[in-house]
Amino acid sequence: MSTSNMVVNPSPVSGANKVAYKGKSKRSFKRMLVVFSFLAPALILYILFMLYPMADAVRLSFFDWDGAAPAMNFVGGDNYTQLAQDPIFIKSLVNNFYWVLLSLLLMILPTLALSVLIGKLKRGKMFFRAGFYLPSVLSLAVIGVLWSKIYDPNYGAINVFLRQVGLGALAQNWLGEPSVVIPALVVTSTWAFYGTYMVLFLAGLQNIDQSMYEAADIDGAGPIRKFWNITVPSLRNTMNVVVSMVVIHALKGFGLVWIMTQGGPFYKSEVVATYVYKAAFSMNKVSYASAGSVVLGIIVIGLTIAFNYWRDKGE
């Protein structure tokens, strides 16, 4: 956006055009009212349900409050020092970052490979794009319930299938085994969200100049070399968007964990969002939970700004 939108009228106020200026300022006041009439509803809703709660979360985090008591005690940074020493909170943060790492591994290359395949189609692109996007249309509740049944140790599709093909030894309690639970959840979340990234990759692939491939063909480059030397570098922009979205999404994860494991077994799949939710709404540690949510908010907003900064710099 150009800065010319910020137009002011620097007309000098001298005796000769005082009257004219008066008329102008009246008009500009009317103009402000018109602008305001367009913006006011959005501003009110936004301030009421986003900006104010954001400030309120920060305020709450400096108090000691159980959600019901009429008085709040100011405790300064106590909640934050407590968080830093809370083994479960730290465990949740670590789990979040483990989740980020696994998501990046599972999500990006397979989705890119799939998009490249779809992009090579001469006919039926729309069909496959629509079909592969289907899981992303479902609600997290549907996906969570569906996959808890798929992972069910007795009747779940995975274990039944493994036993049928004679690999019963591999069957296990996917959501109850401490070492498997996060990878199992990340597989579900990959299934739930790859559709969005596929759409972004497909859009990015469409913008690549086809003549580069033709030139590479003349040079006798094979498909793998073309992929690494043309496709991947040309998708830099899209890749930035996708990586940042995957990271931020993984940090915000709540629904699937809550529906499938509630953080169990023994906090092995606890993430910050589920821990904060428990602290606020079942342990009545409202201000403590607020501090946790502020930490999460700062990490997410900080990373978003950092990713945008890198992207702008790279352009």
Partner: peptide, 11 residues
């Protein structure tokens, strides 16, 4: 950029 989780308690 603001995650819902960060404001849900005050809301």
């Amino acid at each position: 950029a603001l995650p819902v989780q960060a404001i849900i308690i005050p809301v």
